[in-house]
Write a protein that binds this DNA or RNA. Structure first.
Lengths: 108, 108
DNA sequence: CGAATAGTCAAGCCTTCACTTAACTAAATG
DNA sequence: CATTTAGTTAAGTGAAGGCTTGACTATTCG
């Protein structure tokens, strides 16, 4: 059993919120400061900071503070983990489809 | 502007819950009845039914009732949409990395 | 220096959410 | 027919979640 999971639980929880996904979308264009991130978002700076905390704890975002500006960037490893989880579910299922309605169980 | 989303919102919300992901994991081995789905899950049948509703409304699962048994199966299109969203974020980011070869250090 | 800028922290407020219990319907089985 | 099996629905509860306000800390600028 592999124990070294990049916290799939926190990752998917973080991805579950639309504001957080919006942040990631913005961030995928490149590193952005917190207030710049907040600008288009119809919510308070404070709220953005809270989302950022969740994103950082889940490993989806990395931030770094220089002077009074905190710069945020996407951490691809987190996204990759989520993508992998999904791909796994899909591929197992599609392998199952090869049976084409057969009631035989798997092997392996 | 673009309205043609396969309900990314509901999909990621659905994926955000661990019980729901457990259901999907089980389902990726092949179609299963509701009560069989509930068996390993430390929650009530009623709770499972509710999760199933969320999963079905999000398009991640399709169900079909024959007699008194409802059979559930994974709908790969939903998973594919989520996977695509993630891949998009990643690829845009990685493209950006090519342009700006700025300083970034991996920490472990 | 004083003022503006960029964040941070802590309560508190609602709303949403997962889950339970309990009462109920419909189909298979003895 | 009576019972068990499989699922459905409704109502309620407690906890978590997203967001706001407001007070506070650093840093940069005129």
């Amino acid at each position: 059993m592999r124990k070294k999971k990049p916290d799939i639980d926190r990752i998917f929880h973080a991805l579950g919120d639309p504001s957080r996904r919006a942040i990631l979308e913005k961030l995928s264009d490149g590193p952005v400061s917190v207030s710049r991130l907040a600008e288009p978002l119809a919510i308070t700076l404070a709220a953005v900071v809270q989302h950022l905390q969740v994103l950082e704890e889940s490993g989806l975002v990395r931030t770094e503070k220089l002077g009074r500006v905190r710069t945020c960037r996407i951490e691809t490893a987190g996204l990759a983990a989520a993508e992998e989880w999904i791909r796994d579910r899909r591929s197992v299922w599609e392998r199952g489809l090869d049976r084409l309605g057969d009631l035989l169980e798997e092997e392996e």
